[in-house]
Nucleic acid binder design. Sequence first.
DNA 1: ATACGAGTTAAAGTTCAGTTCAAGTCAAGC
DNA 2: GCTTGACTTGAACTGAACTTTAACTCGTAT
Lengths: 132, 132
Amino acid sequence: MGLLIGEVARRAGLSTSALRYYEKVGLLPPPTRVSKRRIYDSKVIGRIRIILLALDAGFTVKETRTFLSGYPLSTTPAERWRALAAKKLAELDAQMTRLAQMKSILNDSFQCRCMRIEDCEKYMPPSNRTAQ
Amino acid sequence: MGLLIGEVARRAGLSTSALRYYEKVGLLPPPTRVSKRRIYDSKVIGRIRIILLALDAGFTVKETRTFLSGYPLSTTPAERWRALAAKKLAELDAQMTRLAQMKSILNDSFQCRCMRIEDCEKYMPPSNRTAQ
DNA sequence: ATACGAGTTAAAGTTCAGTTCAAGTCAAGC
DNA sequence: GCTTGACTTGAACTGAACTTTAACTCGTAT
C-alpha cells in the first residue's frame, strides 16, 4: 500500500524533484525502497503539509529541519528546539505586523489622492526590519 | 543639504551596495550628482522605508517597483497598479493566515506530548499554498 | 604632493530553494 | 526482446536579491 514518489508529489501538490530535494536536505526521512524506487507511507503527506506551512511562513530549510526533528528526550536538542520556537514566534509576530502595515497601505492607497505613496505622510512606519 | 550615499545607508539601516542596487533595478530614482557622487534629498528615507516594508512583506522587486511607480494619469498603468494591489492584498491575507497557523503550531507544541509534530492530528492544515 | 576616506563602475560571486539535464535502471505490456 | 513510462543519480543550472571585488576618481587634510 506504499506510494511512489509521483503519487506523493501529486497528492502533496509539489514536484518529485522537490521531494528528492527535501530528502537530501533532511526535511523528509529516506523512505524504504523497492528496487531502488522510493516507497512512501501515506503518513508522509501530513509531514509534507507541515513542512510547506513552515517554509511558507518564512522558515529556512534548516529551521524547518530543526523544528521537525522531534522533541528529543535528551535535554540539549530539546532546548535548542524551544529556543528556535521562541525566536520564530517573535519573528512571526514581527512579520504579521509588517504584513498588516502593508495591507493597510494597499487598502488605503485605493483612496489616496497623492501622486506617489511616499508623499502620504501617514506611511512613514517606524523602521522595524529583521536584520539582514 | 544633500546626503551622500553612506549617510543615507546609515539612516535607512542598509548597505550602500543595496542602495545602488535599488537604483539599478528602478526602486530608487537616480539622484542628482556632484562630481559623479550621488546626492540624495532626505525625503528618500521615506521612500526607502516603504520599499523595505514592501520587500519584507514578500513583494518582489518588480512588484515593489510597480507599486511605487506612482498613480499615473494614463489609464492603463493605473489599472495595472490596481490589479497588482488587489492581487497582493489577497496574497497578504493568505500569508497572514499561514503565519497565524504556524504561530498556533509553535505555541501549542510547547505543551504537546507527541514526540513528533506530524503525529498531532490537529496540525493537518487544509492545503492552501501559494502556487509555486 | 601625497595619502586618506568615501565615492564611482562593471562584472563576478553568494545564498537559498529548488529545477533541469544527461545518462541510466527497472517492471509491464505488446 | 523491445518499447514505454516512471523512476534513479549527480551535477549543472536558475532566479531573486544582494554583496564583493578590482580598478578607478574625488575632495580634503597633512
